[in-house]
Amino acid sequence: MTERPFARRLAAGLVPAVPYLWLGVFFLVPFLIVLKISLSDPAVAQPPYKPVFDWSDIAGFFSGLDLENFELLTQDDLYFRATLSSVRIAAISTALLLLVGFPIAYGMARAPERYRSLLVALVILPFWTSFLIRIYAWVAILKPEGLLTQALTGLGLISEPLDILNTETAVFIGIVYAYLPFMVLPLYATLEKMDDTLLEAALDLGSPPWRSFWTITVPLAMPGIIAGSLLCFIPAVGEFVIPDLLGGSETLMIGRQLWSEFFSNRDWPLASAVAILLLIILVVPIVIYRDVEARRLEARP
């Protein structure tokens, strides 16, 4: 009889323990390893860094660590420019996403109720199809003799081929296209719950529509605006595929830099240092995002 409650308690304890352990081993520990390797020296070997950990030599372990890679990051202004440019590109893209996403989410929230779940499904569907394929589709559209040039010359709007591919404009288009569902869905979720009587009351009291929009709709949609913006901004800063396929060689982004340090230069310690740098940039937005999400989930009735 004493066995069963124990077995039951054990089973109950396993529910949080198993995923906890999994994330600890495959998320937290790898992270500490990145930190450690970013502090070690590169070596021409396989793997290409000096192992710096040895249980028998703890003192040697600590003396082997240095900030050399980080000094390199501060000396070469390439990384500084890449950081600035990533944040700038992600910020502009997020602003564009808000501009494009808000009217769509607003239209969805105003649509008759029976169409709304269909509209939500239509926004989600492209997200299910491959990210890589969706970016690839834009290469054919944006290239100089591509479909956009063909369409615009056909309409007689331009006479010279447009050269958008391999520019920053193409990167903006790619990010807005790929991340649009992430912006529209949180916005829609807040706009749909909005109480229309507030707008009607404002109208009755003589407020012009644009003023009601700024003083009622926007403040009420703020949780969605914050969640959507973070959900787009954070991954966009570290984006690799979009700048690599649509951007030119002058489009500097930190995710791309990490990729080339790792794959082309095979400098794993420096790649790790770049990863830590990227993380430091993102730590504040990630913490805010986590709080916003946790509060949103826990506040539900």
């Binding site: 390893i33 990145v34 959900l231 790649a271 990863a275 990630i286």
Partner: peptide
């Protein structure tokens, strides 16, 4: 939300 390059490299 972690950039994929970081997750990939750390694993």
């Amino acid at each position: 939300v972690m950039p994929e390059v970081i997750t990939g490299l750390s694993l």
